[in-house]
């Protein structure tokens, strides 16, 4: 399966946040979306997730046009996401957070419970699964968001800075978790993050934005050496 967007343009009252951006992700693939602050990464993710309508361009999953589809229907078509600012369900337990996301899938109740438990232990939240989400620390909340997104049985997972605020140890664990997801669950991942060592180790391909425009895309090595990317974002160290 393939998630594509074509010529996405978004204007925020005169400011062009995205200008004719096109990209595609396939299942079992991890695509990294990088670029400096304000380059339009989250805006693009919001267009893909349906939280924001683009002024121009289209979003497609295989041959299905989902450009005008609201978020709740995109989930049913296999698009799940996490948020840059954590949006867990604070007064629900960890298990209920994950369980709520599985409710709109077509599994039977027993299957849903088993699947939720599987994901919770896979993401490593098993010990705290009966705690309320508002008692969790920041790193656990970020992981809970990923678990919740996974519980919708997605084909594509859109992650907005999942490693933000995590220490090296935590982001190492996150790396190992995310690394296995595409093959194990047959999912394509689009990930935004500023942790370059995580991105370089994790992603199969990269897409670089600057001021709402694509400046480079392709394999990690080609992007790393791209003069515009070095100038705009990475610097000479990478």
């Amino acid at each position: 399966m393939k998630l594509t967007c074509n010529n996405i343009t978004v204007d925020f009252s005169g400011l062009r946040a995205l200008n004719k951006v096109s990209l595609s992700v396939e299942t079992k693939e991890i695509l990294g979306l990088i670029g400096p602050n304000g380059s339009g990464k989250t805006t693009l993710l919001n267009v893909l997730g349906g939280q924001l309508k683009s002024n121009e361009g289209s979003v497609k999953k295989d041959n299905l046009d989902i450009t005008t589809m609201p978020p709740r229907l995109r989930v049913k078509n296999g698009l799940a996401r996490s948020f840059q600012i954590v949006r867990t369900f604070e007064s629900l337990s960890v298990f209920d957070n994950v369980k709520s996301a599985s409710l709109t899938t077509s599994k039977s109740n027993v299957e849903k419970n088993n699947y939720c438990n599987e994901i919770i232990s896979y993401i490593g939240l098993n010990k705290i699964k009966n705690e309320l989400a508002n008692t969790l620390n920041y790193g656990d909340r970020r992981r809970l968001e990923i678990a919740r997104a996974m519980a919708t049985s997605p084909d594509f997972l859109l992650l907005d800075e999942p490693a933000a605020g995590m220490n090296d140890n935590e982001s190492e664990i996150l790396l190992n978790t995310l690394n296995v997801i595409p093959k194990k669950f047959n999912v394509g991942i689009l990930i935004i993050d500023h942790d370059m060592s995580l991105i370089m180790k994790l992603c199969h391909r990269l897409h670089v934005l600057e001021s709402g425009e694509t400046i480079a895309e392709g394999s990690i090595d080609s992007v790393k050496k791209h003069p515009d990317v070095i100038k705009a974002y990475l610097g000479k160290d990478f």
Binding site: G49, Q51, P70, P71, R72, V75, K76, A80, R81, F83, R87, T88, F89, E90, S91, L92, D96, N97, K99, S100, A101, L103, T104, R148, A149, A151, T152
Partner: peptide
């Protein structure tokens, strides 16, 4: 019930609840 749990999810965060399929 599923209605109750999803409704409680919208109570805690409407945007996130819609992103997991809640109407």
């Amino acid at each position: 019930s599923r209605f109750g749990l999803l409704l409680r999810a919208t109570r805690d965060n409407e945007v996130a609840a819609e992103s997991i399929g809640a109407n």
